[in-house]
Design a protein around this nucleic acid. Structure first.
Ligand SMILES: [Mn+2]
Ligand SMILES: [Mn+2]
Ligand SMILES: [Zn+2]
Ligand SMILES: [Zn+2]
Lengths: 145, 145
DNA sequence: TTTATTATTGAAAAAGATTATCATTATCAG
DNA sequence: CTGATAATGATAATCTTTTTCAATAATAAA
């Protein structure tokens, strides 16, 4: 999805959900929706303050909380931290994260059903969900090294 | 691996690595090595204090840090927290975690190479590592519900 | 066994990250 | 425009993890 399309979708969803559109909130939306990499609250705060100087860090936390609750962003877990947020996937996708620059991209088309069926049978678990993430070096970072 | 075997291995590894064997440290080792579920520092502290009453929470943090550095335990990431530790896998294995009781088991035999090759080709990433975790309901919890 | 070295310990303080309070302000339906 | 109230940001409060430091205990050497 394109950035403008995404911010339009997010602001509309916020509004439809009964949330008001404020300058502070929109600055956070813009920053997260446009970012190629997962941002933690402090990252987002520093970037969004360029658009909304009076912004408070608390508002960043509160906005991320709402975006997550609406399924528009997801929290990204990685070896170096689990407090960063990224635009949610479109459909069933998983992340590949660059260990150099932290750029994150989604990929689709995994089929873990055979594996899950086997594990379910062997361990007796009723499987509900799965997490899959790949880590590597992105094309840009491969060139610059 | 059996519990006694595991604690023996851990204490030996600690000693060989130049760390001293103290009552405080051993109480933490015993608790983590015996646990079926991932324990966070406070969990481990409360359990280990039964064996070592004077134990300090700081020592739990420090012991977990050393065990992780030696590859004997791993930090487990889950939707409800990323600060818990579990005995490390033997070889290449991944976790299946019960969303009811948090019991965690390893499973082997996943083969993500075809997927990783495809993603590498399509996204241009050089893939270094992967995380895979399944979530579900364990056999015991399925019965009790 | 005794001794010397020094890694380890736990209390306390400090630092970081996240959440709660609350008076003020801004949004938006009417 | 106006009124109801959601949202804001400063501040304080929590919660988790790390740092400091003097006292202690584990280990190797004598
Ligand atoms: Mn999948
Ligand atoms: Mn694997
Ligand atoms: Zn990169
Ligand atoms: Zn269970």
């Amino acid at each position: 999805m394109e950035i403008n399309e995404r911010t339009a979708h997010w602001t509309q969803t916020l509004q439809v959900s009964g949330y008001r559109l404020t300058a502070a909130r929109l600055s956070v939306v813009n920053v997260i929706a446009a970012s190629q990499k997962a941002l933690n609250p402090m990252d987002a705060y520093l970037l969004a303050r360029q658009e909304c100087p009076g912004l408070g860090l608390v508002t960043v936390y509160r906005t991320l909380e709402k975006l997550e609750e609406l399924g528009l962003v997801v929290r990204v877990h990685a070896p170096d931290g689990c407090g960063a947020y990224l635009s949610a996937a479109e459909g069933h996708e998983h992340l590949i994260i660059c260990t150099h620059c932290q750029r994150a991209e989604y990929f689709a088309g995994d089929d873990l059903h055979p594996l899950m069926d086997r594990v379910a049978a062997e361990h007796g678990y009723q499987i509900q969900d799965h997490w899959l993430q790949l880590f590597g070096i992105c094309p840009e970072c491969r060139e610059n090294s």
